[in-house]
């Protein structure tokens, strides 16, 4: 049979209600399939093209600009209720190419491909000269802060579960305060905090109804005086068990 190239269905606008409806479905799909970091929200529809689909419906190609929210992917809060991260916190944006089909008002995502990157240092410096620039996730100070914070969190209450690090998701140096700030996700193990003290190597990620994810914010301030102790602070939120929710990729990549 003769191959007929797809014809452009019509010339849609990026802010057309139909394009927006498709973009919302695409962003929900992207959030559902996130493997790292934070849930995102739609910032701008860059491009859209519709192609005729036989026998009916259409194929939609979208280019979306998304921005990071403050909800880590382990946070059960729906993405639409999450707060978009402020630009002053060195926001991270993502460029996503999405292919989807629409039939009778129903959308189905076929493929997404996203690339995320922080606001460029130059632009960030211009828009917020005194703000703290994001550090690399493997920055030694960030990593040390996270490990010290998790140790402290596990030690704070010997009656609760013992937690392991799932991933470091953000970190930056606090230049004026001579310190470090970091955010990270955690998961509980099958050990109590007391048991983990002596047999940490035997502790594995909890399973079934006992599985709980958490998200922590930690800061470390180096003391100005030589003889004074440095100051650590850590706050973690542990979420209720979410039936059917697994983050195997995070567990396999970072914990095991």
């Amino acid at each position: 049979a003769e191959v007929v190239p797809p014809t452009v269905h019509k010339v849609p606008g990026c802010d057309d209600p139909e394009t927006e409806a498709a973009a919302r479905v695409a962003v929900a799909y992207i959030n559902k399939h996130l493997k790292h970091g934070y849930k995102v929200d739609l910032n701008r529809i860059e491009k859209v093209r519709y192609f005729e689909r036989r026998p009916h419906g259409k194929i939609m190609d979208l280019e979306l600009d998304v921005v990071e929210t403050t909800c880590h992917l382990v946070d059960p809060l729906p993405a639409e209720n999450c707060t978009v991260r402020k630009r002053e916190e060195h926001a991270v944006e993502g460029d996503c190419d999405v292919k989807m089909i629409e039939v009778d008002g129903h959308y189905k995502v076929l493929r997404t491909k996203c690339h995320s990157s922080p606001d460029s240092d130059e632009d960030f410096q211009k828009s917020c000269p005194n703000c703290n620039r994001l550090s690399r996730l493997n920055d030694t100070d960030v990593v040390n802060t996270v490990h010290a914070a998790l140790k402290e969190y596990n030690a704070q209450n010997t009656t609760h579960d013992h937690y392991k690090l799932l991933e470091i998701s953000r970190g930056h140096h606090l230049h004026l305060a001579r310190g470090v700030y970091a955010e990270f996700a955690i998961v509980n193990t099958n050990c109590s905090a007391q048991h983990a003290k002596e047999h940490e190597d035997d502790c594995h990620v909890a399973t079934g109804d006992h599985l709980h994810y958490g998200f922590c914010k930690a800061s470390f301030h180096k003391s100005a005086a030589e003889d004074a102790a440095d100051h650590h602070e850590v706050h973690c939120t542990v979420y209720d068990h979410q039936p059917g929710v697994h983050h195997h990729h995070l567990i396999h990549e970072h914990v095991e």
């Binding site: 910032n43 701008r44 860059e46 921005v67």
Partner: peptide, 23 residues
């Protein structure tokens, strides 16, 4: 009679608006 059509009317309105900020 021939009527000149506006090109602007046929141009797609993309990219769309920023919902949060311009990065």
């Amino acid at each position: 009679p021939l009527v000149k059509r506006s090109i602007l009317a046929a141009l797609p309105e993309c990219p769309g608006r920023y919902r949060h900020y311009d990065l």
